[in-house]
Amino acid sequence: MMLTIKDLQASVEEKTIIKGLNLTINPGEVHAIMGPNGAGKSTLGYVLSGREGYEVESGSIQFENQDLLEMEVDERARAGIFLAFQYPVEIPGVSNMEFMKESVNAARKERGEEPLSAAEFLKTAKAACKQVNLPLDFLKRGVNEGFSGGEKKRNEIMQMILLQPKLCILDESDSGLDIDALKVVADGVNSQRDGERSFLVVTHYQRLLDYIQPDYVHILADGKIVKSGGPELAKEVEVSGYAWLEGHEEASA
């Protein structure tokens, strides 16, 4: 098992957002999560990453053989969890290059490998930059500083490619992208599918899932997974939206 979430209940600012969530992801699988605004999709990502202020009230999260809830944010990352943010933060003053080099070397250190020299890293970074179709000067700029929405998303995918994580959580990596950029992001993700690496893809649009074929699609509403299925579920949502949820929740209540 890659990830096992059991009966997760989590809150922000004393408000319960995740209300009993169960999810199991096996190595190599791609799971898509869809659901209305405010359902708790991003919150789930934050909880998995270990963000401060996101209290786990009950339940458990197992990552490989480790108790994820016992680990610090950076430990989780080095263990192989990667979260591509819906709204990546800008950090002027820290160059993208320096940032990525330090993160890659932190991962290498964890694996007992020697750090990459500046020259070695530059080579790898250039290739990754090319892969997500960002000009090379983006490496020199401050982290996400002044990047357009789409550029920020591609920058996240570039980091994913560089860090080679085990579980990639993509929070709306497709929103705000033009058609070409959407393809770039999808290709970036697909290039990382190797039968071992797993993906949790949060999206509002069926379109991304045309490119990244998910194994499972889950509907997250009001802090719970209310429906799971195959790729066809995404198509259903595209056609009929979430109006049916009302009835569903009443039925399950």
């Binding site: 401060e52 990352a77 990667f82 950090i91 003053g93 330090e102 932190a106």
Partner: peptide, 21 residues
Amino acid sequence: YYLQTRGIPRSQALVMLNFGF
């Protein structure tokens, strides 16, 4: 937090951030 989610330890992230400015 952002730096930490990329595996950079908190102490090092502190230096990177504060020195960046």
